[in-house]
Simulated scan of single mutants.
Amino acid sequence: MKALLCKSWGDPETLVLEETATPAPGDHQVLVRVHAAGVNFPDTLIIRNLYQFKPELPFSPGGECAGVVEAVGAKVGHLKAGDRVIAFTGWGSFAEFVLADAKALMPLPAGLDDETAAAFVMTYGTSYHALADRAALQPGETLLVLGAAGGVGLAAVEIGKALGARVIAAASSADKLATCREHGADELIDYSREDLRDRLKALTGGRGVDVVYDPVGGAYTEAALRSCAWRGRLLVVGFANGDIPRLPANLALLKGCSIVGVFWGDYTQREPERAQRDLETLLSWMQQGRIRPHIGRRYPLERGGDAIRALMNREVVGKVVVTIAQADRPAGASR
């Protein structure tokens, strides 16, 4: 099989496309023929040995995919060859085939194409866990989404609206904010030319926001924390800015607010039943048209490094997807 390999720690340009042996599933594993794989922020870290999980070299990046079951292990009873599935793999999906634990797969609903499915699991799973579980976002509350035009950001905008919140989207350009508006944002902040705190004060009448969804980090985190309302919740989702902020602890005391960590990957391992129910809820919302992943760019497997670079450079609105052409399936087709 062909696989895009990380053979030494480094930037996306060091990834190489090679022929490698197709793996065989263990007793509780499933071999998936990959049709499309999502590109996510952890992919930018894992190839540089900067992520919480550190696979042995060589490996393929790609933490989620959609495709068809090729083979199942001896103790897998609920899946069979030919089933269409979504898989959360952690890494390995930038390849023609990937092994996944049988518990990390879910059936791909009829009518959902491979590319949309591949753009769904990590971003929407993370954002739903953050907003519905960690923040307990309530109807009528005000939600601020930083980095709102990114994959997890747009998912948070849509999920916030589905949960009944007033959503304020903050991003770095008018074009990005226009997409946020299309996905349901009520108010927009262009923090490349507007002061975040001043704008939030005006939009909330000085009250502040109930929940901050922050996948960005950097200087905006403290500004957002200072804009929290009484009993507000700041969700620490990630640090796409590259800078982990050091926050004044007295702000949490003075505002009676909470700083809440969001680690969806570990949540899926520690509480798999709840994580599965979350995804089932999200899939039903997608079928109802309440949420819809926005795919900003598509790249073939051999350009998977370019896909990761585009994400690192914040060049993409929404999700980036890598498509894997199969001998019996033209690129871009779905079954």
Rank of each mutant, 00 (worst) to 15 (best):
M1R: 03
K2N: 13
G10N: 01
L17W: 02
E18P: 03
T22W: 06
T22P: 01
N40L: 05
I46E: 02
I47K: 06
P55L: 11
F59M: 09
G73D: 10
D83P: 00
R84H: 10
G90C: 05
F94Q: 05
E96K: 00
D101H: 12
A102R: 03
K103S: 14
P107E: 05
L108N: 00
A110M: 05
A119Q: 03
M122F: 13
M122P: 00
Y124W: 02
S127N: 07
A130M: 00
G140S: 10
T142S: 07
L143H: 07
L144G: 06
V152M: 04
E158G: 06
E158A: 07
E158F: 07
I159R: 06
I159W: 07
R166D: 03
A174Q: 13
K176I: 00
L177C: 08
R181Y: 02
L188K: 11
D190S: 07
D190K: 10
D190R: 09
D190L: 05
E194M: 02
D195I: 04
L200Y: 12
L200H: 12
L200S: 12
A202V: 02
L203Y: 04
L203G: 05
G205R: 09
G208T: 06
V211I: 14
V212T: 12
V212L: 11
Y213W: 10
D214Y: 06
S227D: 06
L234I: 15
L235G: 08
G238V: 07
D243K: 15
A249P: 14
N250H: 13
L251V: 15
G265K: 11
D266E: 14
D266Q: 14
R270S: 14
P272T: 06
E273N: 06
R274L: 15
E280S: 14
I291M: 09
R292Q: 14
R292N: 13
H294F: 15
H294K: 14
G296R: 12
I308Y: 09
L311M: 10
V317E: 01
V322S: 00
T323A: 02
I324Y: 00
P330N: 01
